[in-house]
Design a protein around this nucleic acid. Structure first.
Lengths: 207, 207
DNA sequence: CAACAAGTAAACTAAACAGTTTACATGGGG
DNA sequence: CCCCATGTAAACTGTTTAGTTTACTTGTTG
């Protein structure tokens, strides 16, 4: 039992990394049922037994990977409302952060695959449910704005859902269904227009 | 070659119907890769050769079915703007029609599966792209409202996308990802609030 | 009713798959 | 320096799959 510090290359748990990387790619490209352990093995440049030493079976490998990717992305959008500063530019900033995530090729591939698998695998749906609390960031932001008097009397959950909805309607949804990539310019316009709508409804007096 | 009129039971193209029904169920339950032709055969109470007489292969059967279901649903939301009548109740009506579709169990199952398959099958993405023009209904409605002076100066596409986005953010998206069913009461509240927001932004003077 | 299109059951092929086993290699810590 | 965690290659099991073939039956139409 080695007691290596995490920063080190940990000998040949590099293997684990190779497996995980290969599995991510394969699952993203072919979904769960469409991916074979043999292909993962080959892509990872690793023996099949090694794969089964690290992960009990295909299902376990799949779940480990979903967990991992969600972890990686849940750290992306982190902003909170700063009292005193005007609301509009802060909303724009928040929208841009979300936009950046939605423009990530790999994130979108993951989401598309995961959606398709929630049907086959109810446990995955539960996992996604828990992780989907990234939306909490938005909710907390709106609560902060309300408490500071910038958006008096609103329901933070409702406003954050509407704001996210406006952005996703044009930046996320079309991308998921039709593989329409979105350029930075369009994304900026979407964010601006979404902020405009939210302000008109929930902070009409400002400005 | 029989020349039977469509209304008739067309002898044993009943078989075709059985195959299609079974395939719809299996594909919705297990996705493309997860579905076997044998299971379709069995569920259809039909011989395997019969399946292959009607559809060249699994892929062809899958595409025929996607086509079919989209056809079936593209007729659901059909409303156009009526000049003279006030805008708000008409928007509510439009929102309710969309809501009804989103509350359909079978439609949502299809969408979830289809999303997962768009990755594996680019041709499917193209097909969904074409079909997604159901959104045209919304766009035309908004254009009608603009031309009648109810929402002056708007971009119909933008408004329709925002309206749809607001509804889907709470009625569609959570359902897709987390299998959260939505009751009629909640749906009505969502429609009302979405209309409110759209009015605040794009028709503020009215009322 | 004869003939043919369409259906049936069941066995078959060839490939892919998840997961196991075997016999062997290696390299780093005690 | 020796030992054992861990890794490797490759063959193997048992199952599942898409798609074919064969020998036979049925129902509709001319």
């Amino acid at each position: 039992m080695s007691v290596l510090k995490p920063a080190q290359l940990s000998v040949s748990a590099t293997k684990r990394r190779q497996i995980v990387d290969a599995a991510i790619a394969e699952f993203q490209e072919n979904g769960f049922a469409g991916t074979s352990m043999d292909r993962i093995t080959e892509r990872a440049c690793v023996s099949k037994r090694t794969v089964y030493n690290h992960f009990e079976n295909k299902e376990a490998l799949f779940h480990a990977i979903i967990e991992l990717i969600f972890e990686q992305f849940s750290e992306t959008v982190t902003l909170s409302y700063i009292p005193g500063k005007p609301l509009r530019p802060q909303l724009v900033e928040l929208g841009r952060a979300e936009g950046k995530l939605l423009m990530s090729e790999s994130f979108m591939r993951l989401v598309r695959m995961a959606m398709g698998e929630t049907m086959r695998d109810p446990a995955l749906a539960v996992k996604m449910n828990e992780r989907a609390e990234a939306c909490t960031v938005f909710s907390c932001f709106m609560a902060g704005a309300r408490d500071a008097g910038a958006m008096p009397g609103i329901d933070p959950a409702e406003v954050s859902e509407q704001f996210l909805g406006l952005i996703k309607a044009r930046a996320f949804w079309p991308y998921v269904l039709r593989s329409n990539a979105i350029d930075a310019e369009t994304m900026e316009a979407i964010v601006q227009s979404s902020v405009e709508t939210i302000m008109a409804r929930f902070a009409p007096d400002t400005e």
